[in-house]
Design a protein around this nucleic acid. Sequence first.
DNA 1: CTCGCCTGTTTAGGATCATGGACGAATGGC
DNA 2: GCCATTCGTCCATGATCCTAAACAGGCGAG
Lengths: 182, 182
Amino acid sequence: MSIDVGARLRSVRLIYGLSQRELARRAGVTNGLISLIEQNRVSPSVGSLKKVLDGVPMSLAEFFTIDVDTAPQVFYGDDDLVEIGTADVSLRLVAAQRSARQLTILRERYAPGSATGDDALSHRGEEGGVVVRGRIELTVGGSVRVLGPGEAYYFSSAIPHRFRNVGREPCEIISASAPPTF
Amino acid sequence: MSIDVGARLRSVRLIYGLSQRELARRAGVTNGLISLIEQNRVSPSVGSLKKVLDGVPMSLAEFFTIDVDTAPQVFYGDDDLVEIGTADVSLRLVAAQRSARQLTILRERYAPGSATGDDALSHRGEEGGVVVRGRIELTVGGSVRVLGPGEAYYFSSAIPHRFRNVGREPCEIISASAPPTF
DNA sequence: CTCGCCTGTTTAGGATCATGGACGAATGGC
DNA sequence: GCCATTCGTCCATGATCCTAAACAGGCGAG
């Protein structure tokens, strides 16, 4: 086996912030199996692997397609934005490193205390954005961070995510997503 | 198992024109295993499935990604072309049934006896075309057919393919491919 | 400290997969 | 007809996967 199924599964599980037991419960398998697979002590049957991924959920195609080596950068500081404009027109590009981006733009405003919902969102495509004003708490998979003006984000929308304005002033974000969900 | 691994494998094998035993030999497994998998009598381990696909060769990601349901029509007779023009302007569309087509156009001419090479080509993307003049022998996977004026083709470029002019007059084809390989 | 609860790992045994070989059917040559 | 070859399927056995349960370590509460 040249392909490291164990490492892939562990990455996926940790991105979703699940323990072996929790994933096993959702998938309807035992925690021991998750452990054995992640250690590459067994090569799971396709049926078993599908059951496990159903607990995330993630398709087999996605599982074997996702690039787990190049751990996708999720958070971008002010200095992480790439300037691609001219002296007259400043264009700072978010996630310039990632290829095959196809995005559409949104402008979002969050009142103090508001959020995108009590539960995290999860859908097809990718999304990214920049905070223009205020502060926003962003949860992506198992990672949480509060972003302020000038900071940015970019992640796969398949990973459960949630925005919440934890500050006292309104928050404004310039965001982009693809394919268009609205 | 909602995903029909058996049917997928059988489709892949037949596209490449291999028998169960021949695929088994290349993959280093037994023909019985191929048979059992194709009948969904077993759910192969990821390791076994990878060995089998290495015999094609095809990656696990491709295997679970390819669209095998819409049994891709490869050859199109004159009547298989869909007329989408008006009474004044006749537009006959090749592979109209297939969704998500993104093509660019080429004009190809083959001198008598010439071919695209001794070995079959295989690359990313999709390609299709129409024979305008002459006759061309087209090999796609395990299928071979000689196409004449007005007939057409459309297939995934990942499947090994080869063009050869077996006639005595030059052959002209209007073809399209995506993403652009030139 | 102990207790409770969580984490991931390990082990024995039953369930499933994978093998090597046998089988019947279909095909082509002689 | 008859043999040789190839096809896909099926069967018994050994190999591997998967489960259930036990195990060791970490961490906070009391």
